[in-house]
Design a protein around this nucleic acid. Sequence first.
DNA 1: CCGCTTCGTCGAAACGCTTCGACGATCATT
DNA 2: AATGATCGTCGAAGCGTTTCGACGAAGCGG
Lengths: 352, 352
Amino acid sequence: MATMHDVARLAGVSPSTVSYVLTGTRPISQATRDKVLAAMAQLDYQPNAMARGLASRRSRILGLLMPMDERGLGATETAFVTGAAAAASAVGYHLVLSPVGGGNLDDLRRLASQRMLDGVVLMEVQLADERVTVLQEAGVPLVLIGRTGDTTGLSYVDIDFEQTVREAVAHLVGLGHRRIVYVNHSAATLASGYGPALRTRDAFVSAMSGHGLEPVMIPAEDSAAGGRAALAAAFARTPGLTAVVAMNETAIFGILGELTGRGLSVPDDVSVVSMVTSPQVAELATPALTAMTSPGSTLGRIAIEALVRHLDGRGNERHQQLLPCALEIRGSTAEPRRPAPASAEPSPTSGG
Amino acid sequence: MATMHDVARLAGVSPSTVSYVLTGTRPISQATRDKVLAAMAQLDYQPNAMARGLASRRSRILGLLMPMDERGLGATETAFVTGAAAAASAVGYHLVLSPVGGGNLDDLRRLASQRMLDGVVLMEVQLADERVTVLQEAGVPLVLIGRTGDTTGLSYVDIDFEQTVREAVAHLVGLGHRRIVYVNHSAATLASGYGPALRTRDAFVSAMSGHGLEPVMIPAEDSAAGGRAALAAAFARTPGLTAVVAMNETAIFGILGELTGRGLSVPDDVSVVSMVTSPQVAELATPALTAMTSPGSTLGRIAIEALVRHLDGRGNERHQQLLPCALEIRGSTAEPRRPAPASAEPSPTSGG
DNA sequence: CCGCTTCGTCGAAACGCTTCGACGATCATT
DNA sequence: AATGATCGTCGAAGCGTTTCGACGAAGCGG
């Protein structure tokens, strides 16, 4: 393995000159540069990352910290990762995936103090997230994907839940729907202060009210069974409902199953919009789901770019940005068949 | 940020002694050790990863190389990652996730030569995978998840497709099924030499033949539409089919949709077994899918453990291991309703 | 009690790079 | 023509560890 000294010797220059060619920190004449480059190519030279990191006090490694609980990464989280990884490698950084959950704060502290990570992107941020404090105390540059409750002094990118919900509701209202139910995450999740669940709830209330409609929200456990139960509850609360907005990527399949089980067809009897959903998941259903597609990989990319900008000294101010999900109309939404019947029971209509 | 010298000074010993306490490379008296440990605690000392890496020529960073194509990571791949990450951090290594696909071999060469990675786990290995060659040439210790065609001299862990298929078929035959169709990946994927597709195909043929049954395999595109088309083809080939084994996590939802569309109920009319599937995905369907659950996180863990064992010098021989998927019976398989009718057309039975 | 290991510690030399100060040489400015 | 800047390069001093050789102090068989 050739070192910088070997290159310098072969090129007939000093080691520091080689370094300047590599880093561009000082001007080098074209002739010298060419000699050095030729020597590097001839020796198949690759700079040693450790030595470079030690000398420059910058590892050029970025950490992507994610909870990695037992249920793994959904398509949306995966998109964060891929987007971030691509962005990082595009600007010459490496991305370290670290499975640091909420539990092992000491692990996190250790990781942060080892000077191995130049900066960190934190995923799955809770409204009150201790990891943020730990990282800040360790002095590690930080960008969140998601938001804590108090975001002063923090950089983040997050989904614009307000606008996303507004668009979803507008789409349905535009089709003629009036009785729209919002199926959210579970009551426990809401109670724990999970940002997306709370923010979409509020947004739904305000969007529906804006259209002069009654906002009905039903919580659902994160499972197919939870979705089924939630749909039953929805029909009990809003008998003539013609549309469902669902935030719960897991429950949605239960909702669809229950709809079919009741002999109701999608979208003829009931329209369904899935929130913050990846195209891959939306396509799994039959018919494919009209969904608010999460800007997952974009979020990851922006987070990395903001972080790197900060590390490189360009732009020292905080980066705070919200991105809406894009409405992608597929087969699960249509005009409501009937002008909202007044009957209370879900009529045993024969399915399509 | 305290350094080793600070610790040494405070403890009244030489820096090298502090190093020996940390690494255990030489015996240190209990008294000295205590002094040093106390000094480290008092200064909140954390060794500098870069310096350690440079001096010891071991970064204690492991790479997990994955293609990261546009469609992201499925639940199974995610399980590899989580398992590997957990195992790595358990033995004091960091895991670098690197989105090095098949295209950018130069990126890979560079990454491998930077001496930043002590070793590498390669995912999504193809039958002929150039990345293996590149890594071997760069002299990077390597473990595969999956297998190339020729595995001599390579360490790997992979799914035991033989046994997995055998068990799936045995389950269905045990229930009384005779006309079983295997829905595989696409013809193009098969042609490209994708190991899992080829190995399961051969295993299916041998398993069915072992039961004296005719093995029918249908390729399917990786999409819901592909699944639908494949099911139609399956009925054309095997009119009275009562069971489907599907390898295609994406197509399976199309298969289910088409089944429902034909008025056939799962599992009463047709049983379905999904291969190499995570519980999360299996639960999305209604009814939940009987599936061969992939040992994803175990695979990741074993790969890392084999790699670390090799790096630490213990056990220099190759690690080659196959793990079967576990049969998890859910709601999509049952005894066949009818003793295999002879009619050719899919009868327009009214669904349940 | 003499020479031998073994134990515990130290000092110094790497590890391969970045970066700082210095210094001719070139070039524009008065 | 004298005076600074600026350019291009060099040598050397780190960066914070690990690791090697050395060495006094024990411990021990004979």
